[in-house]
């Protein structure tokens, strides 16, 4: 099923018609294409978490429409109309391990499919498969989730979301607090899951290197407004614009600019990952570039 997400003129107001009224999303119109790996970036208070909570109707817009596949979410949409949608959109919130509660790992992962009407046996089969998908050893499945390390607990929580077999996987800073090895493994895992299960991924992150390495689509929010959307190379093409909006370049891009300044050489397109930077340096060295020096 195609599950593109389309925001049409979406406004969201916290505590409307009170002195505490605060506009969290302002006239947002944007599309998250089916099968894309979309990065959502912006500072604290930019509206990222409010945006996320609209993806499965945890929040309904104050005005405007969010179309997710066939389901439209409007200010009038009732909770009970959203049950079907919520099976398709799995959201991994920050520090998801804080939400583990079952006696064993396998029960925790099987909770969602059981809740969505699968038999005990079916739910457990799905849970075993998902545990394998996220790299949890079989021997861990009968343990209490609270005996596991932080990184393992997070994998259990993510397997629990995957067990809903969603088509859209939403990740809110999924690697916060993990060590570099754990971060790398987790990001590679999402990449693999996306490819194997044909997921649409929406990732909230501060790590511009991850945006450059994994995403093919970027949405930038600032104070509740959409200020840019496009491919990573489009978003990172204008360093001055980034500085104005207090956004960083990926490290490779920063390095490339310093290299250009110092040497007078010019890259044909600004490299955003170390792989493409090294390739471009090699091709310049072998005479493939234009020398402005």
């Amino acid at each position: 099923m195609a599950m593109a997400i389309i925001f049409k003129a979406v406004n969201y107001m916290y505590q409307p018609n009170t002195p505490f009224e605060q506009q969290a999303l302002e006239n947002i119109s944007v599309e998250i294409p089916t099968g894309s790996y979309t990065a959502l970036i912006g500072h604290t208070g930019s509206g990222k978490s409010t945006f996320l909570q609209h993806l499965n109707g945890l929040l309904r817009p104050t005005s405007g429409v969010i179309q997710v596949g066939k389901q439209a979410i409007t200010p009038e949409t009732k909770n009970k109309q959203l049950g079907e949608l919520r099976k398709h959109v799995g959201i991994v919130f920050q520090f998801p391990e804080a939400q583990l509660f079952e006696e064993t790992v396998i029960k925790d992962i099987a909770f969602a499919p059981k809740n969505f009407g699968k038999s005990e046996e079916e739910a457990e089969t799905i849970a075993r498969r998902m545990a394998q998908q996220v790299g949890l050893d079989d021997e861990l499945l009968s343990k209490s989730p609270f005996e596991l390390s932080g990184g393992q607990m997070r994998r259990v929580a993510i397997a629990g979301i995957l067990a809903m077999e969603p088509e859209i996987l939403v990740l809110d800073e999924p690697t916060a607090g993990l060590d570099p090895q754990g971060r790398l493994e987790m990001m590679e895992m999402f990449k693999r899951l996306k490819e194997e299960q044909n997921l649409t991924v929406v990732l909230v992150t501060h790590q511009m290197d991850d945006v450059a390495k994994y995403a093919d689509n970027v949405i930038v929010l600032e104070k509740g407004k959409l200020i840019a959307s496009g491919t990573p190379s489009e978003i990172f093409a204008q360093p001055n614009w980034l500085v104005e909006h207090h956004l960083a370049l990926p490290k490779a891009g920063e390095f490339a600019l310093e290299f250009e300044k110092k040497t007078g050489y010019k890259f044909s397109t600004l490299p955003l990952t170390e792989v493409s930077l090294a390739q471009q340096i090699a091709s310049l060295l072998h005479g493939g570039g234009v020398h402005h020096g």
Binding site: P180, A252, F255, E274, L277, A278, Q279, I281, A282
Partner: peptide, 20 residues
């Protein structure tokens, strides 16, 4: 050992792959 490698070290490795 739990440290994100510095960017310059990651770049070096990619340069080596390019025969530099």
């Amino acid at each position: 050992i739990g440290l994100e490698p510095p960017f310059s070290e990651k770049l070096k490795e990619e340069l080596v792959k390019q025969g530099i």
